[in-house]
Structures are given as C-alpha cells and as structure tokens.
Lab assay of single mutants.
Amino acid sequence: QLRFETNGEEQAKKVLEEAKKHNLEAHVTIENGKWVVHVK
C-alpha cells in the first residue's frame, strides 16, 4: 500500500484520478490537516 501526502484537496483529487486510470484502489484520509491518498 502506497501513501501520498498531498498539499490539499486539489492535489489529492489528481492523485485519485491517476490511480483510477491505472485501475488501482485508492482512498483519501485527512491526517493532521493533510490530505493523504492511500493506494493499493
């Protein structure tokens, strides 16, 4: 499982879109005010 700390909602959405293009499972959590994308 990969973990990407992003700078906010915009970047998190871009990472999610990329993951979906590659048929990867991804979800976002907010940790300590940071948007974190988890990709399987």
Rank of each mutant, 00 (worst) to 15 (best):
N23C: 11
I30H: 10
E5R: 05
V28L: 11
Q1V: 15
V28Q: 02
H38L: 13
N32I: 01
E17Q: 11
K34W: 06
H22D: 04
V28E: 01
E31Q: 07
E17A: 13
T6M: 13
F4I: 15
A12Q: 01
K21P: 00
N23Y: 09
N32G: 12
E31A: 04
K14S: 09
A26P: 02
K21I: 07
F4N: 02
H38A: 05
K21A: 11
H27G: 04
V37Q: 00
E31M: 07
H22W: 14
N7W: 12
G33W: 02
K14W: 14
E9T: 04
L2F: 13
E10I: 08
R3Q: 04
H27K: 09
N23L: 07
N32R: 04
K40N: 14
V15R: 04
V37H: 00
E31G: 02
V36M: 04
E18T: 11
T6P: 03
V36E: 01
K20Q: 11
Q11I: 07
Q1H: 14
A12M: 07
H38N: 09
V28A: 06
K13H: 11
E10T: 08
K20Y: 12
L2E: 05
K21E: 06
G33M: 03
R3H: 08
A12H: 01
Q1R: 10
K13D: 05
W35A: 01
E9L: 11
K14L: 13
T6W: 04
A26Y: 06
E18I: 15
N23H: 12
L2H: 10
V37E: 01
E25M: 11
R3V: 10
K21Y: 09
V15A: 07
T6F: 15
K13W: 13
V36S: 02
E9G: 04
T29G: 03
W35G: 00
N7T: 13
N23F: 10
K21L: 11
A19M: 13
V15E: 03
H27N: 08
T29R: 06
V39D: 02
N23T: 03
K20A: 13
A26Q: 01
G8R: 09
E5L: 08
K40Y: 15
T6D: 03
E25G: 05
G8M: 10
E9N: 04
L2R: 09
K21T: 06
A19S: 04
V37S: 01
E25P: 07
A19D: 00
L16V: 12
T6R: 05
L2K: 07
E10Y: 10
K34L: 11
I30D: 03
L16H: 03
T29I: 10
A12L: 07
T6Q: 03
L24Q: 05
V28P: 01
V15F: 14
K13A: 11
K40A: 13
H27T: 13
L24D: 02
V36A: 01
Q11S: 10
A19V: 09
V39M: 06
T29D: 05
V15G: 02
K20M: 12
K13N: 13
F4P: 01
E10Q: 09
H27I: 12
K40M: 15
F4R: 02
V37F: 00
V15M: 14
K34F: 09
E18W: 15
L16S: 03
H27S: 11
E31K: 04
Q1G: 14
N32V: 02
K21R: 12
A26D: 00
Q1D: 14
K40T: 15
A12D: 00
K20G: 06
E5G: 03
A26G: 06
K21V: 07
E5W: 08
H38I: 15
A19W: 10
E17R: 11
L2Y: 13
K40P: 06
I30T: 06
E10V: 08
E31Y: 05
G8I: 12
R3P: 03
E10W: 12
T29V: 13
K21W: 08
E18N: 12
H38T: 15
E25H: 11
W35E: 01
H22F: 12
Q11Y: 09
K21M: 10
N7K: 11
G33P: 00
G33D: 06
A19I: 11
N7I: 11
L24N: 03
A12S: 05
K13P: 00
V39H: 01
G33A: 03
V37K: 00
E31N: 04
H38S: 08
G8C: 14
H38K: 06
G8K: 09
K40I: 14
V28R: 01
R3S: 07
L24W: 12
A12E: 01
K21G: 05
N23A: 08
A26H: 02
E18L: 15
E5C: 14
A12G: 02
R3D: 04
R3F: 05
T29H: 07
L2S: 08
T6A: 11
E9Y: 14
V15W: 14
Q1F: 15
G8A: 09
H22L: 14
R3I: 10
K14G: 06
L24H: 06
F4D: 02
V28G: 02
H22G: 05
N32L: 05
T6S: 05
G8T: 15
K14T: 08
K20D: 04
E31L: 06
H22P: 00
E5Q: 06
N32S: 06
E17F: 10
E10P: 05
E17S: 10
K13S: 09
L24P: 03
V36D: 00
A26W: 05
K20W: 14
W35M: 02
T6V: 15
G33T: 02
V39L: 10
Q11D: 14
Q11C: 13
E25K: 09
V36N: 00
V36H: 02
W35F: 07
K13F: 13
N32K: 06
I30Q: 10
E18V: 13
N7V: 10
E17P: 00
N32Y: 06
V37Y: 01
Q1N: 14
K14P: 02
K14Q: 13
A26K: 00
V15T: 04
A12C: 09
F4Y: 12
K13G: 07
H38R: 07
V39I: 15
N7A: 14
G33L: 03
V39W: 06
E31I: 08
T29S: 11
A12P: 00
K40S: 15
Q11R: 04
K40D: 11
L16A: 07
W35N: 01
W35R: 00
V36T: 04
E17D: 12
A26F: 05
I30P: 01
W35T: 02
K21D: 04
L24A: 05
Q11M: 12
V37T: 02
R3N: 04
E17L: 12
V39Y: 05
V39A: 02
L24S: 03
N23Q: 09
K34N: 06
L16E: 04
V37A: 02
L16T: 04
F4W: 09
I30K: 09
N23V: 02
G33Q: 03
K14A: 13
V15P: 00
K34A: 07
K14E: 10
E10R: 05
N7P: 08
T29F: 08
L16D: 01
E5T: 08
E18P: 00
E18Y: 15
E17T: 08
H38G: 01
T6I: 09
I30L: 10
H38W: 15
F4T: 03
E5M: 07
H38C: 10
G8W: 10
E5F: 10
K20E: 08
H27E: 10
H22E: 05
H22T: 04
W35V: 03
K34T: 09
H38D: 03
E31H: 06
V37G: 00
A19G: 01
V36F: 06
Q11P: 04
K14Y: 13
A26L: 03
A26N: 02
E18R: 12
L16F: 08
K21S: 09
G8S: 15
Q11G: 10
T29W: 06
Q1A: 14
V39T: 03
V15C: 13
K13V: 09
K40W: 15
V28N: 00
I30S: 04
A19N: 01
E5Y: 11
Q1T: 15
E17K: 10
N7H: 10
E9F: 13
E25W: 10
L2M: 13
I30N: 08
E10L: 09
I30F: 14
E31P: 00
Q1K: 10
L24K: 06
Q1W: 15
Q1L: 14
E5P: 05
